[in-house]
Design a protein around this nucleic acid. Structure first.
Length: 561
DNA sequence: AGTTTCGGCGCC
DNA sequence: AAAGGGCGCCGAAACT
């Protein structure tokens, strides 16, 4: 039996701790201790810490170098369990869970804190009310009961453990930061945008704006869509937006400089000099990674746009001297996950090899046209409803009927308003009904004059448009099950890296970056591959599907592809 | 003046 | 070639 302890910060700045028995209840009296880090450090035999919120506790442990093997995050678990029970949108704090148990008024969750440019990752984040240890354990015991009441308690247990592991990894990555060379970043910006005039736009942007204006024969601001649309209209060209793919089809001399301007302008505003000022300190880019930030289980970042770093800017991600970046990408993750969850015999067979899956699919169903095969697979996963995608989808269905039927069924379930789950049981929010219905169902008393407060927590993706919702749930089962797998991957990787100096510094859906001493790099690359296969077995059980990674050992992120 | 929404595009 | 899923971010536009 694993050695489980619970921990809750006390109001006097100390911490309450208690050992837990197999039933999840305290096996001995609660102890008040002065310091959370010391309380953990002095109990190296504990294999899992149960606490309210990893974001609240873990950073202060990390600050003193204390390592936690595993945790159970009660609020992360509450979010997942509520979703599984079809009660998405109800307040998910431990305090709210306790209030529901006791039948008292349920406190709303605190509002999401916006990004704080320049701030370190949040250290002593109070998000959620203080909950005494005894109350926390009441909630925990009830969560265990709810877990056992599900159709697949083993999967839910794994999901809760994986999500908690994700919380640990996120906190550790937030502390580490991404190695970032501000000088290289500035050089890239200078190359792309030219020198900056005081108070004005950079030289290259100014030149392109002049070219656009010259082409139209009047002054046009290329960064203002309304101005651009008007200019095209005056030139006798009808265009409904200034999206790039639409502009590209136009025959007009302004198009080329306009597209170039928009590309560079985008880089300047999203990852330019002010971004550098805000988010990079002491050689590290410090975004705040939020595990479980989306309904599919994908992570998000709060601030810094860390999951959208443009390719050209990756030049600035450089390992420390004597260190390397191990950049690892999962190969064709989504179709491999679809093979694992649908158990389609043909797709499992091609996913059972480590070779390019899209090529294998195209050999079997698309006469060797890899691009078409890839479009067909992604179209099936994303719910493509028109164009070549439909024709390709038919070809895919003939050869891999069980796989396509799996996502079709997910789409149908979504359209009919049924719950849809990932492999481990993360659950898609139910379809939106009217605001009033949803409010009543959630049991939240709401003043008549506050309809906006209700709409606020009805997620936008819970669309009332049945077809849009079908596309969402179709994608949800694949994207979400992939996220299940990546959480287990991160947990396994974190565990395996403890013996090394290496640190996980970046994670983006199907890609990880480990920063490590040069001599550890090959070991790390192997560790990632092993973690991926272990995660595959843990997540999906016995399956022939393989989860290969492409790994590159580089000094600079931009050289990984 | 402050807050929310929109348009467009970066990443997967 | 065409426009399907998930996000975050920015400035401008559209509001209170």
């Amino acid at each position: 039996m694993a050695d489980r302890w619970a921990l809750a910060p006390a109001e006097d700045g100390g911490v309450d701790v208690a050992p837990l028995g197999p039933d999840g209840l305290p096996a001995a009296a609660v102890r008040r201790e002065a310091d959370a880090a010391e309380a953990v450090r002095s109990r190296p035999g504990v294999t899992r810490w149960v606490w309210r919120s990893t974001a609240e506790v873990h950073p202060r442990l990390l600050a003193t170098g204390v390592r936690v093997e595993r945790c159970y995050d009660v609020e992360a678990a509450e979010t997942l369990l509520l979703g599984h029970e079809g009660r998405y949108g109800q307040p998910r704090s431990a305090a709210a869970a306790l209030a529901r148990l006791r039948g008292g008024p349920v406190p709303p969750d605190p509002p999401q804190r916006p990004a704080e440019p320049g701030a370190q990752s949040p250290l002593f984040e109070p998000r959620g009310a203080h909950v005494p240890l005894a109350d926390l354990l009441t909630v925990y015991a009830e969560q265990q009961r709810r877990t056992e009441a599900t159709a697949h308690p083993d999967r839910i247990r794994l999901l809760l453990a994986a999500e908690s592991a994700g919380m640990l990894v996120a906190a550790e990555m937030n502390r580490a930061g991404v190695p970032w060379r501000a000088d290289v970043h500035r050089a890239v910006l200078h190359d792309l945008l030219g020198e900056r005039y005081a108070g004005g736009e950079p030289r290259r942007l100014a030149e392109l704006a002049d070219e656009v204006s010259a082409a139209f024969g009047r002054r046009v601001r290329p960064d203002l869509p309304a101005d651009v649309l008007k200019a095209f209209a005056q030139a006798g060209i009808k265009v409904s937006s200034t999206r790039r793919w639409e502009l590209e089809s136009l025959d007009h001399p302004a198009v080329k400089p306009l597209i170039e301007y928009k590309k560079l302008y985008r880089i300047m505003v999203a990852h330019g000099w002010s971004w550098l000022q805000d988010w990079v300190r002491d050689g590290r880019f410090r975004p705040e990674f939020l595990a479980g930030g989306t309904v599919t289980g994908r992570w998000v970042t709060n601030g810094g746009g860390a999951l959208q770093i443009p390719k050209v800017i990756r030049r600035a991600v450089v390992a420390d001297p004597g260190w390397r970046l191990v950049v690892a990408d999962a190969d064709q993750m989504e179709p491999r996950v679809l093979a694992a969850i649908s158990r389609d015999p043909g797709l499992m067979e091609v996913a059972g090899r480590e070779t390019d899956l899209y090529q294998s699919v195209s050999d079997r169903a698309f006469s060797g046209d890899r691009a078409q095969a890839k479009l067909a697979v992604l179209g099936a996963v994303y719910g493509q409803t028109s164009g070549d995608g439909l024709k390709n989808l038919a070809a895919l269905r003939r050869r891999f009927p069980t796989a396509v039927a799996y996502v079709d069924e997910a789409a149908r379930a979504g359209e009919e308003g049924r719950l849809v789950r990932t492999w481990l049981g993360r659950t898609c929010p139910p379809a939106a009904r009217t605001t009033d219905d949803a409010v009543e169902e959630a049991g939240i008393p709401l003043a008549e004059e506050e309809p906006d407060a209700a709409r606020q927590w009805i997620p936008g993706y819970a669309s009332t448009d049945a077809r849009a919702r079908g596309r969402f749930t179709r994608n949800f089962v694949v994207q979400g099950s992939a996220a299940d797998w990546t959480l287990l991957l991160l947990a396994a990787l974190r565990q395996a890296l403890t013996e090394l100096a290496a640190e996980l510094v970046f994670f983006q859906h199907d890609e990880v970056i480990v920063h490590c001493p040069e001599e550890e790099a090959e070991t790390v690359a192997g560790v990632i591959r092993e973690a991926a296969e272990l995660a595959g077995r843990l997540t999906f059980g016995p399956t022939p599907v393989r989860f290969p990674f492409t790994t590159a050992v580089v000094e600079c992120y931009a050289d990984a592809k």
